[in-house]
């Protein structure tokens, strides 16, 4: 038996609903239909009255979740595509994210954002939003790259007493598989060494972890041992694990699918450069998507985001320095 990344998300929600009466799911088409991606398939039938269809009103969807959380519930919101969370931006960053700071009362909401590019999805169904939300205080931003993390981190997200932005990558939904669901997991806030190596540290998260691993495979044939760090959560960011890896390799390449101005990769580079400058044998480098909207056509899209090939090319350049 195998389970996909998407099924893991569905199973995590089923378990959260089963184990905690405070949990409910709210979002567009999440009810009897089971969600645009089927991440809530069958849950409305299994948990009557607790998987609720919302009108197309992202602002009010997240606003409602905040109000329910204040009353002690544990809402899971599905925003149909991460891109549409911009409509809910105000409720996320101004309402949910400021609430505990202002009132001392926790605001435990989980906002699931199906994110990232897939073939032919174009500018408005492809965005990755983690860098934007990580900028705001009061939010936790998770970016699971594996089936196991999708499951365990979503369960942890629901249990966390603060607003969690759960960035699940659509490209991983169907093809990423595991044999079973995990029984234990690293806690949120801890990065994972996805592959050990000694010549260069590749820091990645979400779908980019798999591109990074493929790049490492390619570079292995050329004699390079690449260490791949999967950040798992971008906020909080596990600087210690990154720094320890750079201490071993002396070289850092950070890869992200979001846009190049600022963001997660810039943050990682800044921390390593300012706190671990002496560990570096070469200037730290980063690779992001191009600074344009996400293109529609597969030819353009494949060149817009970092891929195993472009990551390997950037790594080679860095290894030669």
């Amino acid at each position: 038996m195998s389970i996909t990344y998407l099924e893991a998300i569905r199973e995590a929600q089923a378990r959260a609903l089963a184990e905690d009466p405070r949990v409910f799911i709210y979002g567009q088409d999440v009810g009897a239909f089971g969600g645009a991606f089927k991440a809530t398939k069958g849950l409305a039938q299994e948990f009557p009255g607790r998987v609720i269809d919302a009108p197309i009103s992202e602002d009010a969807i997240v606003g409602l979740a905040v109000g329910a959380a204040i009353e002690g519930m544990r809402p899971i919101v599905e925003i149909q595509f991460a891109d549409f969370s911009t409509v809910a931006f105000n409720q996320i960053v101004n309402q949910a994210a400021t609430f505990f700071w202002r009132t001392n009362l926790p605001c435990p909401i989980t906002v699931r954002l199906p994110c990232g590019g897939t073939l032919g999805s174009g500018p408005f169904h492809s965005q990755t939003m983690e860098s934007v939300y990580a900028h705001y205080p009061g939010l936790i931003v998770l970016t699971p790259a594996t089936v196991e993390d999708a499951y365990s981190m979503l369960l942890e997200a629901v249990a966390i007493d603060d607003p969690v932005i759960f960035c699940e990558h659509k490209l991983l939904y169907y093809h990423l598989k595991a044999e079973t669901l995990p029984t234990e997991a690293l806690p949120v806030g801890r990065a994972r060494i996805a592959r050990e190596g000694r010549h260069l540290t590749l820091v990645a998260y979400s779908a980019m972890v798999h591109e990074a691993l493929a790049a490492a495979d390619e570079l292995k044939t050329e004699g390079w041992d690449i260490e791949v760090v999967d950040l798992r959560s971008v906020k909080p960011l596990d600087t210690d694990t990154v720094m320890a890896s750079v201490a071993r390799t002396g070289r850092l390449l950070c890869v992200g699918e979001s846009w190049p101005w600022g963001g997660v990769t810039a943050e990682v580079i800044t921390r390593v450069a300012s706190e671990g400058f002496a560990l570096l044998d070469a200037p730290p480098a980063r690779l992001n998507a191009k600074d344009t909207p996400v293109p529609f056509h597969p030819n353009l899209w494949a060149a817009h985001r970092p891929t195993a090939r472009s990551i390997a090319a950037a790594a080679r350049k860095l290894l030669r320095q």
Binding site: F24, G49, R50, D59, A60, I61, V62, G63, L64, A65, V66, G67, A68, A69, I70, E71, G72, M73, P75, N90, Q91, N94, Q95, T98, R102, T103
Partner: peptide, 25 residues
């Protein structure tokens, strides 16, 4: 008693959420 943010209309959905929570409970 809910503390308002400055963005007008933003508190209405929060009240909705509190009311839905009561219903669910």
């Amino acid at each position: 008693l809910l503390p308002m943010i400055s963005h007008l209309g933003a508190m209405i959905a929060v009240v909705n959420g509190a009311l839905l929570a009561r219903r669910l409970k």
